[in-house]
Amino acid sequence: MSKKKVIVVKVGSSLLANSDNLTLRFAFMNGLVSDLAQLQRDGHKVILTSSGSVALGLNMVKRRPEDAGILDKQAAAACGQPLLMNAYRQVASEYDLNVAQMLVTVEDMEDRRRFLNIKNTMLRLFENDIMPIINENDSVATRDLRVGDNDRLSAKVAQMVEADELIILTSVDGLYDRDPSDPGATFIHEIDDVSAHLDSTASVSELGSGGMLTKMHAANMAQNAGVETIIAEGIIERPVSSVLNKERRFTRCLVRGETASPLKVWLSNRLQVSGTLVVSADTAEGVVDKRRGISRMDILSLQGDFSKGDVLHVYTESGEEIARGLTNFSSEETILLARNADTPVEDVIGYKTKSDIIGAENILVLEDKHLPLEAPDEDQKIVTPA
C-alpha cells in the first residue's frame, strides 16, 4: 500500500460497546486506534466516524437498548459522548496521536454552507496531523430529524473530503446473499450494483440504528462520490490495515461510472427529503433528455415546508424520482408563483430574481447508479389553477 490515501473508517456501537453491560470494549478500541495511528504516521489522512455515545450512556439513564425511547437516547448520548471521547483521547495519547471531536446533525450535512464549513475544519485538522472523530449529535437529534445511522454519515464524510476508501467495520466479515447464519449463505466478494442486494439486507443490529441495509445505502452514496467502500469484520488486531493490505476477506463495493462535480454529488447524496415537486410526463422527459431546469409552469404539486437553497426531489405523476436540485424559492413562494404563472415574478413575490424554480445549472438528473427515494406519504399541495 504505497499510495498515500484519504481513508474514512466507520465503527458501530456493536463493536465499541459490550451488549450485556453496555461498557467499552477497550481491547477493540486499543487495536483500532493503534492501527489508525500507524496509518497516519505512514502518511495517510484518516477520519474516524464512531458510534457508541448512546450505548455507553444508557446505564446512566437506567435504560436498556430495547426499552429506551427517543428522550432516553438523547439523554444517554449526552452522558455517553464524554465517556467515549475521553476513552479515545486516553488511548490515542499512548500512540502519540492527536484527536479532535466533531458532532454533526443532518441539517449540517444537508445545508451547503455548513457542509463546506465542516469540510474546511477537517482539512485544517489534517494540516496539523490531528485525526477527526465524527459522530452524529444524538443529544439534539430527533426521530424525524437525524442522519439515522453513522453508515450514511460516514459516506457523506467520505464524499466531503473526496476520500479514496470508506471502510465500514462491522460484526461480520462482509456481505452474504442471505442471513450469514444460514448454512447455504454465499459470501459476496465484490459489488457493482448495490440495488441488487437491498432485499437481503433488512436486519438491524441490537445496539446500532442501522444494519447491512444502511451499509448498502452508504456504499451507494460513496459510489456516486467516486469512493470505494469496503465492508469488513472489526477484528482486534490491525482491523483497517489488514484490509487495505488484503490480508483477509471483505466485501468491496466498486465505483460506478464517471463521478459528477462536487456540487452534483452533494445534490445526489441526500439524508432526508426537504421537499418534493411533481411534474408532468412531458416536463420530466424534457428535464431528463435536455438537462433543462424546472419553471413554475412545470409544477403540478409540491410537498414539504422548504426554504430557498434546499434540495428538492422531482417526481413524475407516477411516483418515479427523476432529479434533485437546489430551489431558488421557498415553498410559499413556489406556490404563489405557480398559481400566478402569467404574472411577473417580481410582482408576485416583491423582489427581482431568477424565474426558474430550479435552474438547469443546479439540477442533477438521476441515473441507474443512484438509489431513488420514495416520495413522502404527505398530502400534496396542488399549485396549478383549478
Rank of each mutant, 00 (worst) to 15 (best):
V106H: 09
A87T: 14
N224W: 00
I358V: 14
V8Y: 02
L116V: 12
I191A: 07
L116C: 05
T23W: 00
A17P: 01
N98Y: 03
R252Y: 00
T170L: 09
I294P: 02
L373T: 12
D377L: 10
S330H: 00
H189N: 07
M122W: 03
A222C: 04
A100N: 04
T334E: 01
M102A: 13
R64S: 14
L36Y: 09
K369I: 13
V104N: 05
N30T: 15
A222Y: 07
S205I: 00
E361C: 04
R152D: 08
S280A: 13
D151W: 03
D35F: 14
V54Q: 04
T276Y: 09
A27Y: 01
L24H: 04
D310T: 10
V240R: 08
K264W: 03
L198V: 12
S50A: 08
L263I: 11
V106T: 15
S200P: 02
G80S: 05
C79P: 00
G43R: 14
D144M: 15
D179Y: 10
S181T: 14
I168C: 03
L371H: 04
I335Q: 11
T334R: 07
V172Q: 14
P180H: 08
Q223R: 12
I230R: 07
K3F: 08
V33Q: 08
T170F: 09
G80V: 04
E190S: 08
E378K: 15
S209F: 06
V61Q: 05
E94A: 12
E317I: 12
D347G: 06
P344G: 06
I231V: 15
L271R: 04
F306T: 14
R292D: 02
L166P: 00
A100G: 07
C79H: 15
G359M: 06
R324C: 04
